[in-house]
């Protein structure tokens, strides 16, 4: 805990969740015979390559990045769908690696739930909505009596602004936004404190996205929830987050309070991402053309992964992996920032 306070001097909140050196490698090698014939070695995909972050109780921490940056893998590591290759996830001070049996996991499972991206795949099409929402209650035997379970399901559906009568129906009778509400109701069924939201609105239309984002904010206030929010949409992230982390090829390149990150971005990649957002205000702001594309995560560039696209890269960037250093209330992993080689942005 002392370490936590030291790491984030500007806030004295207690972290509910802490990831330390979290890493997940996938073996994406071709089958043995192919490898032997081609004389190729194993290829390891470092989807998440040692990241550290903390989430304070009652706050929203977001991870943003382009596809393949490992943000969804982080979400799955946190909820235990994947085993970390290295590092730890601590929930409320407890190391989850120690919870090896299902029984030991159960108390954490009740307190930590997940909302998924695709509202058409995240609900079992053969189940009635009431059964879907009741699943966590029945699994953890939170309520034993059958009628009371249904009563609770009704309450949950009302909580997400649906009608208790909707429990009768099947998922295919609902629109994408309504399904996402059902998904949220299910996630809330075991009274969790912490929700991992993996791109919960990216499959939705903007007007529906607004409904869901508003709902999530309301629920956070009403139920004092803590969110880990995964998204590729910077505007959405800015709207919902207290803290934002930017990922690039499996590494967390920068994290900071949302205001600081969006109005005073430090890392060149963060600046590039912000610059790429289409300008809705039509201010005629000239845009710098973004160069290059995300390289293959199987063979990432040496040193700082971003160096081939970075206008400030030098030899040190090409050879040495930058360390995360404190900056503007957050942390930045960039040699150029450390050496003050980047001009301050005139934003905000």
């Amino acid at each position: 805990m002392a370490e936590a306070v030291q790491r984030r001097p500007s806030h004295d909140g207690v972290p509910l969740l802490r990831a330390r050196g979290l890493a997940k490698y996938f073996d994406v090698s071709p089958p043995f015979v192919t490898r032997a014939l081609q004389g190729a070695g194993r290829s390891i995909l470092r989807a998440v390559d040692g990241i550290d972050f903390e989430i304070e109780t009652g706050k929203t921490f977001s991870l943003v990045g382009e596809s393949g940056c490992g943000k969804s893998t982080v979400a799955r590591l946190i909820v235990g769908l994947y085993e970390p290759t290295k590092g730890h996830v601590e929930f409320d001070g407890q190391d989850m690696a120690g919870l090896t049996t299902r029984k030991a996991m159960e108390p954490v499972r009740r307190r930590m739930q997940m909302i998924f991206q695709d509202p058409f795949a995240s609900l079992n099409p053969r189940w009635r909505v009431a059964d879907i929402v009741a699943e966590p209650i029945r699994t953890h035997r939170i309520i034993e009596d059958g009628r009371e379970v249904l009563h609770r399901v009704g309450e949950l559906l009302e909580l997400v602004r649906l009608s208790p009568r909707d429990g009768e129906k099947f998922p295919h009778e609902f629109s994408g936004g309504q399904r996402q509400r059902i998904s949220i109701a299910r996630a809330l069924a075991s009274n969790p404190e912490f929700l991992v939201c993996d791109e919960p609105t990216s499959a939705l239309d903007v007007s529906v996205q607004a409904q869901i984002l508003n709902l999530m904010k309301d629920l956070q206030r009403e139920l004092s929830l803590t969110y880990l929010f995964i998204s590729h949409d910077l505007a959405v992230v800015y709207h919902i987050s207290d803290y934002v982390g930017v990922m690039y090829l499996g590494r967390l390149v920068e994290w900071a309070p949302a205001e600081a990150l969006f109005h005073n971005p430090q890392h060149p990649y963060t600046r590039m991402l912000l610059d790429a957002i289409p300008d809705l205000d039509m201010s005629g702001r000239p845009r710098q053309a973004v160069a290059g594309e995300v390289p293959s995560p199987i063979h990432p560039p040496s040193g700082c992964h971003f160096h081939p696209r970075c206008p400030f890269a030098n030899d040190r960037c090409r050879s040495e992996v930058p360390k995360s250093l404190p900056r503007t209330g957050g942390q930045v992993a960039c040699h150029a920032v450390e050496e003050n080689r980047i001009p301050e942005t005139g934003k905000a």
Partner: peptide, 13 residues
Amino acid sequence: KEYVQAAKVIGVH
């Protein structure tokens, strides 16, 4: 599919 992952996250056997 995500509904199976959801069940895993819930802790279903």
